[in-house]
Design a protein around this nucleic acid. Sequence first.
DNA 1: CCGTACCCTAGTTT
DNA 2: AAAACTAGGGTAC
Length: 296
Amino acid sequence: MERGAIPLDACPGGLDLRSTLESGQSYHWRREDGRMYENAPDGRYYTIVDGEFLRVRQAEAALEWEATTDAEPYLRELLRLDDDLDAIVANGPDDPLLREAYAAHRGLRIVDDPAFPCLISFICSAQMRVSRIHGMQVTLAERFGTTHEIEGETYHAFPTPEQLAGASVEELRECSLGYRAPYVKETAEMVAEGEAHPEEALGMDYEDARESLTRFVGVGNKVADCVLLFSLGYLEAVPLDTWIRSAIEDHFPDCDRGSYAATSRAIRERLGGEYAGYAQTYVFHHLRTAGTAEAP
DNA sequence: CCGTACCCTAGTTT
DNA sequence: AAAACTAGGGTAC
């Protein structure tokens, strides 16, 4: 294993690793102590990307890592360490709710997950609690993913499109996917057979990219926005989930224009356009954790 | 654009 | 205590 540390003073706006990985953006990291979503401090998180094992923990002034390869380029990408949070916050709209969310969770970064796992996890997210979405991805990995032996421990990569397409709907249902099981299978088949790939949206204008992702089974506008924001680098995407819809109702009622597309345009504008997705993610996390005591 | 069915589980209420 | 009820980051038809 290789080891290293990325100094966080070189990361404009810093990093809050726990908020970043436990805020329902990425479902492909696990905590070594198993205490995901429990608001517990000091977690060590691990994942497998491109067949490489990565493990990280947040130290005082650095992001420390151990990995089967040089993890730094992976981490810079996966955790968007080069985003200038200070500038994003400073240039964002001057709105009380947003200021509060930014202040409460400073260091939370948008993730940049691999596209296929991201797509599947958000298909699974329909009508589902964050902790259970995570549990489903863990189950899929353990059941269908490639096994890696690292220092005597067994880990599972997220399944490839081929591995998931090879699963039967019944097997997928056994992973508690419910009505999402056929969606996952059909989408995995589309990717495995080369019929479509989520990364084909890259380079398109935002709304075209969103439309293009909805051809996958189980993907509507909301899930498409999640994939655009959390995997494809469209930082203007604002997924209209129930939390942000209630924030719209309470704080930006004039942005409710009825249809998804029109409301999306209005709230995107209100949240600062280019980086509206950052604002959405902070507000989402802030509302979702409201009332929950943040561990010191 | 609107309504409804869809699966499953933890947590709450009867 | 067992059973009914509810809600949870929606989508397809």
